[in-house]
Write a protein that binds this DNA or RNA. Structure first.
Lengths: 245, 245
DNA sequence: CGGTTTATTGACGATGCTCAACTTTCGTGG
DNA sequence: CCACGAAAGTTGAGCATCGTCAATAAACCG
């Protein structure tokens, strides 16, 4: 794993068309190419500690990372799930506001913060794309606030599964028809931290959805969805709309 | 109210140094001046309906607006509180994702979306400032996710009051020392919608904080805080850190 | 195959919600 | 200026949901 990404040409990068560099032309890409470097993290490893000095920013190339916040007494809330192409860090701020942890093995495409800041000041395409991505994340965070503040445990679980399913469908570009099935990239505890629940409640509600035929489980992580509309109904979302991302 | 803002010169604008135009030089300001117009809204009036076509963006000049999301069965969650200088709308998206409502009488400085989009493509200072503001809002939204997902009702109320108090202190640039007091800009129901509680629970917890001497009430809206550190402790935040905004 | 991590399930209790009565505040018109 | 009615807020009783603690089961990994 470690060495697979020692140097990938930007043109061949799997996240080329979705990441912060999506809008760059050949010249801009060449500039990025010069200052980028790859870093790998093992599952469970902390990428950045909240409050730490951040001397780099970057994109998730592969794997999943999570953004979490922890209270003094140990209560924890996940505030973002970082997927391939998502951006980590914030130009203009020197310390991290949240913990970033590798949920699976993660490869990141990093830029030292200073050169990157110079670059976004000079290449509008990077700044424009970053603004667009940040606005999308803000919308997603606000959608999540509805879930955290108002949804029941059952609705929270159904929402999480349907979001993962939607993402899966979007990635493989197949319409969400017929028998959809997905792998949960999170443990029960991580789901609990994401949904503002305890892991016991997560487990119970997954069992309940299974018992009611809304989902089927194969192993602990693999979920089949016989009827996606039924799941969306359970999630309590408007039938038409839904979460962006 | 209505006519106070028929035409204010940008140079004299009360939010000049905090809004999306904060970094603009004289020339850029002149451009903005040409395409801006003011709109007033009465307390309770809806500024934008979720799903509606948005043909303008703009800044809150005075008053308070709220960003809310409502489920089919009526459950409601406030996902943002818009204060003077906050930006409304999103370049690059044609329909609104949330309801925007005037909580008090509100005056907005508006720009038609198309000209504004052209402008941010050409004047980097506006785009830069907008990115900065969006990143701040994202951080604030994520802090709020911790509150919604993990804090107790009592902690939620204490957090809300301390945030309003901090903002008050920041605005008047007086250190948060001595006997601080603030006006709550929200009804109990609006607080409930913001905090993910019912209005009854909000009322009960305010009464409890009063009984325990953490706050004092004068009327329904005016809160005095004899000991701000005590309040912050009740809010469950790290003593040092705290919410940006 | 054994040990560790992860997940499930149960019993019980606490926190916050629902429904309802009542009080206070505020704005309006007599 | 007071009185009235509506809106906003408070308080209580009972209950549902979800959290806590604990025991057990399943999955995963050398």
């Amino acid at each position: 794993m470690q060495d697979h990404f020692v140097h990938v040409q930007c043109g061949d990068c799997p996240i080329r068309h979705r990441a912060v560099c999506a809008r760059c032309d050949t010249d801009e890409l060449a500039e990025l190419e010069q200052i980028k470097y790859y870093r790998s993290f093992q599952a469970g490893q902390t990428i950045i500690w909240s409050g730490d000095r951040m001397d780099f920013v970057g994109s998730v190339v592969s794997g999943i990372a999570s953004l979490t916040q922890t209270m003094e007494d140990g209560r924890r809330q996940m505030v973002g799930l970082l997927l391939p192409s998502d951006f980590v860090g914030r130009p203009g701020r020197s310390t991290a506001a949240f913990d970033v942890t590798a949920t699976t093995d993660v490869v990141m495409c990093c830029f030292r913060k200073k050169p990157f800041e110079t670059l976004i000041a000079e290449t509008p395409h990077v700044a424009q794309r970053l603004l667009e991505m940040t606005l999308d994340e803000l919308d997603a965070a606000r959608e999540w606030m509805l879930l955290l503040g108002r949804k029941t445990a059952r609705e929270k679980i159904a929402s999480l599964i349907s979001i993962i399913a939607r993402r899966e469908a979007a990635l493989h570009k197949k319409k969400a028809s017929g028998n959809l099935s997905v792998d949960l990239p999170l443990t029960r505890e991580e789901m609990a931290d994401y949904l503002g629940l305890t892991l016991e409640t997560v487990s119970r509600q997954i069992s309940a959805l299974k018992k009611d035929g809304v989902i089927t489980l194969e192993g602990n992580r693999h979920v089949s969805i016989p009827d996606i509309d039924r799941l969306l109904e359970e999630a309590g979302d408007d039938t038409d709309g839904g979460l962006p991302v």
